[in-house]
């Protein structure tokens, strides 16, 4: 069990990350990347989750385009001035100068998906300039009907030729700091995380499990399967559970969590 290795000999605790999918300045949530529902104001929601005890916030501008970059940067700046926990931004990054803009606006980390697949050297460039700790590589993986794992880009719409294992090894090698692993076949379905995927190897860097959280037990299972952090969106936005409630459940199940003393 990787859980044992992950939490041995460290004071670090598993993290609960609230993800805000942003489109046109609003937080949205979709099922299997389609059908977007309006969930509210990005900064307001981020501050609410911070209050509830979220350990990090991830902002993904899922409809990012060049003309909307200015408003995205404005949001990042406001978040940096108001949030007291680390936050990551992603969406619309194509080259190092896009990354420079996000870091200059105050982001702690950036996350890449499509751009990393299309320009893998960008991983090396970012790691070299800002350090691996500043870079999360998002991998959208789908279990195909054949049972094989396939990598997707462009918000889950385009299948990539590289195999899952090949891509995973490559991003680690190029200097990614963390992997945000989204099981597309689980995302928005509320059927739990893909535990098999999480447990299948001893990852050499932190793994953030994403896609499929429906109830507190899904978080527990993901952490027990080896996730260093669990990222969720809809379960929080819909108000089904607060971050506090998830953390309390995990503590009751013997998982150390950051809580107020």
């Amino acid at each position: 069990m990787s859980q044992l290795n992950t939490w041995l000999n460290t004071s670090l605790v598993p993290r609960i990350i609230a993800c805000l999918d942003v489109a046109n300045g609003r937080v949205v949530k979709g099922t299997n990347y389609k059908q977007l529902l309006d969930m509210g104001e990005p900064i307001e929601l981020a501050l609410k989750y911070e209050q509830q005890g979220a350990d990090e916030i991830v902002f993904l501008d899922i409809k990012a385009s060049v003309d909307k970059q200015q408003s995205a940067l404005e949001m990042v700046r406001k978040v940096a001035m108001n949030l007291s926990i680390p936050f990551t931004v992603g969406g619309g990054i194509k080259q190092l100068s896009d990354v420079d803009k996000f870091f200059n606006a105050g982001a702690d980390k950036v996350t890449l998906n499509t751009a990393a697949v299309e320009t893998p050297d960008l991983i090396d460039q970012i790691a070299k300039k800002y350090g691996s700790q500043s870079l999360i590589i998002a991998i959208d993986v789908n279990r195909e009907k054949s049972g094989k794992l396939a990598i997707y880009t462009h918000g889950g719409s385009i299948s990539v030729k590289k195999s899952y294992q090949q891509w995973l090894d490559e991003v680690v090698d190029r200097g990614a700091g963390e992997i945000l692993m989204t099981a597309m076949h689980k995302d928005g379905t509320g059927t739990g995380f893909d535990l098999e995927l999480l447990a299948q190897e001893d990852f050499s860097l932190p793994i953030i499990a994403s896609g499929g959280a429906n109830e507190p037990k899904d978080f527990l299972d993901a952490i027990n399967a080896g996730a260093d952090a669990v990222l969720a969106a809809g379960i929080f936005h819909r108000g089904e559970y607060s971050v506090t409630e998830i953390k309390q459940y995990l503590i009751n199940n013997n998982i150390d969590m950051r809580m107020k003393k």
Binding site: N9, S11, V13, R15, D55, Q133, D256, R258, K261
Partner: peptide, 28 residues
């Protein structure tokens, strides 16, 4: 010395000082 470096995340402080004792802080 840990295999996974950098250390990134929240850890509980071990301290005898009341201000620091048992609180969680963010490391990178």
């Amino acid at each position: 010395k840990h295999a996974k470096t950098p250390m990134v995340g929240w850890a509980k402080l071990n301290s005898e000082n009341e201000l620091f004792k048992d609180d969680y802080v963010y490391f990178v």
